[in-house]
Write a protein that binds this DNA or RNA. Structure first.
Lengths: 263, 263
DNA sequence: AATTTTTGTTCCGCAATGCGAAACTGCAGT
DNA sequence: ACTGCAGTTTCGCATTGCGGAACAAAAATT
């Protein structure tokens, strides 16, 4: 084995702790943490001390459990402050939410998931909980389908291979079924999701795209099922597409391709 | 010199890069970055490679400028997923936004600033832009005054010493003036901010507190100045205090003190 | 109260790992 | 072609992080 990367392995290991804490639904004790990462306790202790000193994690004083700190949120949210996508979509999203009362969300692709980075408009829906930073699987979201529609066949297949969980009865888990769906998405230039992730809601999504229809981000709107009908879908679809188109223009063609090149 | 901390210095230096990128309003070139941190270019390069490998930063492909990645947002937002404060305040905030249409925000204390971690309700106001993760000075926000009101005199003094910038004509920069203000805040159990940060808006805030009135977080509501009058203030103040009280109860007394102990 | 078990912290010698000066590459603009 | 400037790679040195093991403190069990 030869040196393959110039990255600092000790630091990478430390960042693994952050990832773990972000992924786990709740706080972790020191021992759990060391066990989960399969790291000697002495080393894990050093990693935690380091992150504590950087103020990225804190520990619950009585259980001594570790969790992410509010400062970590601040650091991560720096992404929003820099994101041209966020800026470009901001006003179109608000306009959409005014036209159609519902939950309007902005999603980007992060490690094989849709990551929602912004949300406007309120519906007492449970999915609105912790909406910024929420990650959802590609196969079970309208936004995800937009991203899948822009991918190569082998990418779609490899991703779908990992999407086996059925969130509701209508979650798409079959590759062939998904390919049909994606063909429709490409034709209609928007994606639909009716109770495939959350019962009682339907969602339409449209991509913020470059001229080749590859999506850098997605604008979606979630509505209660009681509000669903074919005519309603047509209306909403047009408005969602319009919002996405405005965001695309705002970003500019160069903006989009740069965003895409970053992957 | 003796070993003073057990933290990993190389990693801390790497995390400084993240801090810098979070703080700077825009993307940074590699040289700027190295210069800003006063680090040899070879080392800075290693740090960036490491963060790239961890997917916490990305580089703009044509300018090669570095910026935070969307994955960094995901990691940081893990704080929200774990935060009992966020959970406890979620529904009271929505209720408040329904009662009074305006921007309802949830703030915590982060390194001498108010950090807004959640926001509901729309007003086309500029402060709503990138509201999650936004940091504001303590002296110029209603939320900040709530935190200041729970601090010792010397803490207030040392913080005020750094608060010299005047955002508007009425920004409080004098320590004595602030002490008067804080006395009122303690008495009224809510804080007011009329055009001290943003012209055209007024804000009321109430703390999510423990029995000793020390705030673990703050709920605030921002309204257009056209909506201001003494009677209106009384109405809004009661509702903001009520929302904060509900959140306090939801969190539970133990929850609050634990949150406080974490500092 | 005495015990075992579990969990968190510190020590310490070894060598792996990160360090930074300097050399090198590639790209713009004379 | 030449000069700068921005970014990347090399390389020998010693600093720094490593982890087994011993230690301390707190729960859980007897």
């Amino acid at each position: 084995m030869k040196k393959v990367s110039t990255a600092m392995s000790s630091t990478l290991r430390c960042l693994k702790v952050l990832e773990l804490l972000a992924e786990e639904p709740f706080e972790l004790s020191f021992s759990e943490l060391a066990a989960r990462l399969d790291i000697p306790k002495a080393s894990a202790h050093r990693l935690c001390t380091t992150l504590l000193e950087a103020d990225l994690i804190k520990q619950e004083p009585v259980t001594r459990h570790y969790m992410l700190s509010s400062h970590a949120l601040w650091v991560g949210s720096g992404y929003l402050r820099h994101s041209p996508l966020y800026r470009a979509a901001f006003f179109p999203m608000q306009e959409l939410a005014r036209q159609i009362p519902g939950t309007v969300q902005l999603g980007v692709l992060d490690q094989g998931y849709v990551l929602f980075i912004h949300s406007v408009g309120y519906s007492g829906a449970p999915h609105a909980f912790a909406d910024v930073g929420l990650r959802r699987p590609l196969n079970a979201t309208a936004s995800g389908k937009i991203f899948l529609a822009g991918m190569s066949t082998q990418d779609v297949e490899s991703i779908m291979a990992k999407c086996t969980e059925k969130y509701t009865g209508s979650t798409i888990t079959s590759v062939t079924r998904m390919k049909q769906e994606l063909a429709e998405v490409k034709k209609a230039r928007y994606a639909r999701n009716v109770e495939e992730l959350l019962p009682g809601y339907w969602v339409l999504a449209a991509g913020i795209v470059d001229p080749e229809d590859r999506a850098a981000a997605v604008i979606s709107i979630t509505l209660p099922l009681s509000d669903f009908s074919p005519e309603r879908e047509a209306t909403v679809a047009d408005l969602v597409k319009e919002a996405a188109r405005k965001a695309s223009l705002q970003l500019g063609p160069s903006g989009i391709s740069r965003a895409l090149l970053q992957r």
